[in-house]
């Protein structure tokens, strides 16, 4: 009987831990990446600042929406999937932007050296 209860509670405990990690640290990291990534995909607006200022101002809202979704979605696997997709898309965008900036820096640094050869 005791063994059965222990075995039965194991998946429940595992799910609770998984949910806790998802709605805790994972949620915070994904919200931070969505905020930072928004600098690249959000519209700039007429003053060319909305893509920077709005995500910073709305960070608590981004986190809260994500937290409640990740906490309350009955299907834990789906919640993990949504968080992972958001994380990968925004991290990918940020990574791609870094790559572009670094490449531009390198070509900028190489330009004066190339001039004497011309």
């Amino acid at each position: 009987m005791t063994t059965a209860v222990t075995n039965a509670s194991k998946p429940g405990k595992g799910r609770a831990w998984s949910r806790g990690i998802l709605a805790g640290p994972v949620c915070f990291i994904v919200a931070a990446l969505v905020m930072a990534g928004a600098a690249l995909w959000a519209p700039e607006g007429p003053a060319h600042i909305n893509n920077i200022v709005v995500p910073i101002a709305l960070f608590p809202a981004i986190w809260a929406v994500l937290f409640f979704y990740l906490m309350l979605d009955k299907k834990l696997g789906r919640a993990w999937m949504v968080a992972t997709v958001l994380l990968l898309v925004n991290a990918g965008l940020i990574g791609q932007n870094f790559y572009k900036v670094e490449a531009a820096k390198k070509s900028h640094a190489a330009a004066p050296q190339a001039e004497p050869a011309r």
């Binding site: 931070a32 905020m35 600098a39 690249l40 910073i56 960070f59 608590p60 986190w63 940020i94 932007n97």
Partner: peptide, 21 residues
């Protein structure tokens, strides 16, 4: 809402945005 905005903006949001953009 406003309190966590003020805390996070200077703690990491502004440096993170500066890093990305």
């Amino acid at each position: 809402f406003t309190g966590s905005y003020f805390s996070f903006a200077s703690a990491f949001a502004i440096p993170a945005m500066a890093m990305v953009a």
